[in-house]
Design a protein around this nucleic acid. Sequence first.
DNA 1: CCCGGGCGCTCAACCGGTTCAGCCGCCGAT
DNA 2: ATCGGCGGCTGAACCGGTTGAGCGCCCGGG
Lengths: 341, 341
Amino acid sequence: MSPLKRPTIADIAAAAGVSKGAVSYALNGKAGVSAQTRERILEIAARMGWHPSSAARALSDGRSGAIGLVVDRPAWVLGIEPFFMQFISGVEAGLAATGTALLLQVTEDAGAEEAAYRRWWGERRVDGVLLVDLRDDDPRIALLSELGLPAVVVGHAAGAAGVPSVWIDDGAAVRETLAYLVAMGHRRIARVAGPAHFVHTRERGEVFDACAAELGLPGVDCVHTDYSGEDGARATRRLLSGPARPTAIVFDNDVMTVAALSVTQEMGVSVPGELSLIAWDDSELCRLVHPALTAVSRRVPEHGRSAAAALLSLLDGAEVPDIQLDPPVLVPRGSTAPAPR
Amino acid sequence: MSPLKRPTIADIAAAAGVSKGAVSYALNGKAGVSAQTRERILEIAARMGWHPSSAARALSDGRSGAIGLVVDRPAWVLGIEPFFMQFISGVEAGLAATGTALLLQVTEDAGAEEAAYRRWWGERRVDGVLLVDLRDDDPRIALLSELGLPAVVVGHAAGAAGVPSVWIDDGAAVRETLAYLVAMGHRRIARVAGPAHFVHTRERGEVFDACAAELGLPGVDCVHTDYSGEDGARATRRLLSGPARPTAIVFDNDVMTVAALSVTQEMGVSVPGELSLIAWDDSELCRLVHPALTAVSRRVPEHGRSAAAALLSLLDGAEVPDIQLDPPVLVPRGSTAPAPR
DNA sequence: CCCGGGCGCTCAACCGGTTCAGCCGCCGAT
DNA sequence: ATCGGCGGCTGAACCGGTTGAGCGCCCGGG
């Protein structure tokens, strides 16, 4: 209840008997003050518990010291989708050293997302943004470049002309996954994917098709969903009720795989005896269910860390190349087995 | 690539042929300009796409237009814990109308959390914060009041002297849950709880004990965990391996309940035949597993919305009372049944 | 001995808003 | 006719930093 007074550089200047300018030079490690004056000023600032006012700094140098992340997925999906929180944890880790803040916005639709960028830009609230869930010809890319708001795309490389990206090549993992299934005798393999309009979904699908062709498979039956468990369950029911029931299904996230597992119980299909399941994205969830889920695992927090780091160096004026992270690896667990005879 | 120029009130003033002050009055709906001048200024501002610079505004009126939320839970728990993302969605909804931004910070430990508050305060980055996961004699309360940083406590009422809270009374739900189980013949009921140092965990436990006594039960065996599925599984194994195996277990979140369900499969215990399971917190997860989980459901996004609204009116200088939300309700599903003979 | 040049510092402007004091002109009241 | 008051506006200070211009001073070189 004794609201502390926040010290300003003027307070420090008065205490040290120097001018505001000298204090600023000292605190920012710039030339213009002697070593011992600097020492003294730093000591006083530390003792007073000084922090630079983000507003004043932003106003004078035009940088807000914050970056933004807009997540445009429905709340009910977000709640249960482990990806984002892990990603955000990673982003924080990448930001921590610099004291940059993270603004998070959860929107209801793409229009609201664009409005958020416009507002952040107009209010000079963020210095740059992280872009997730890229779509084909994503209008956000054009918007951000029109606004001149620096951005880093997460999860996919090309298509984002002029905007660097931090991404993971799913190709190798798709190949590994399909080869593994084929080696175990699977021929009818299906895929339950995320929304078709996401670039990473589409591209993963293309690799699936290409690999299937290479391996001489009849093709990979693909059903698109909204990533929710409910939709995943529906897709699974449909696949299992069709004429040529698959012997293996690969899912685009782990929540849908868990949902599928309970569909198999409901329908009396044994996993992995009659049906193998593979999750893409490996959260704790995969280890909690029975049987534990074979999953394609990528290091999500690392992804966030790299994206944050890339954006920071972009803001520092550096030339940032596309950054490719370690490819995901297949982690076999109890939900996969040789195909039934 | 053509970085738009962000208009300032000086630009608007020049265009309208008035002073900066007049523009400020017009844009803020304050007295001091005639209706028609105001009209003209608003029109020009809209045409130019003006947004107030958050930095300039923060500097001059001392308010940042942002609130903060620090989540101090390990990343691996956060990823899979549906509560937070849903809560955050709700907070955004409560903030949306005012244009207030949300700063999110995920920290590794309590020390880092306090450091975050100190920094935010020193940098004047946020006007107030939302406090979750309250502990007994929580040092954050003292810190925030020392700093004079407004706060709203989420999830619990008393103990937060001087700080308003938005909370849910678990008492009725605990009573309902235990009565339901007892009515179905259960006598040996156990509880797998969250960390003992959280106030809401402790209080829920006290109500459990009191109700159990009222209902003439031998007492509720309670195991504390870190909320992770792994820990929940461990606790479940221990309870099921003990001498007086419970016939019903109530969990403090849904992830642990899912984990417990797979432990029962692993140990050959039938649910709900031999063992009933109840989850506290009802995310989609509960409906995805088989059998679907009976759960105590509370409206988490609503919780976030109210908390945000309370903080906003606190920042407006209003007297904010503790706000009690609708009590949670028991949603029976397939994981509960009469106790075995 | 004088001059030039850096070092160490001060001063003031500036970023983009808000707000207060003050001024002008017009109105109604006395 | 005079005066008070108020509506409508301007000008300037202020918030807390950063930064460029400028100014003594001391030192070394010619």
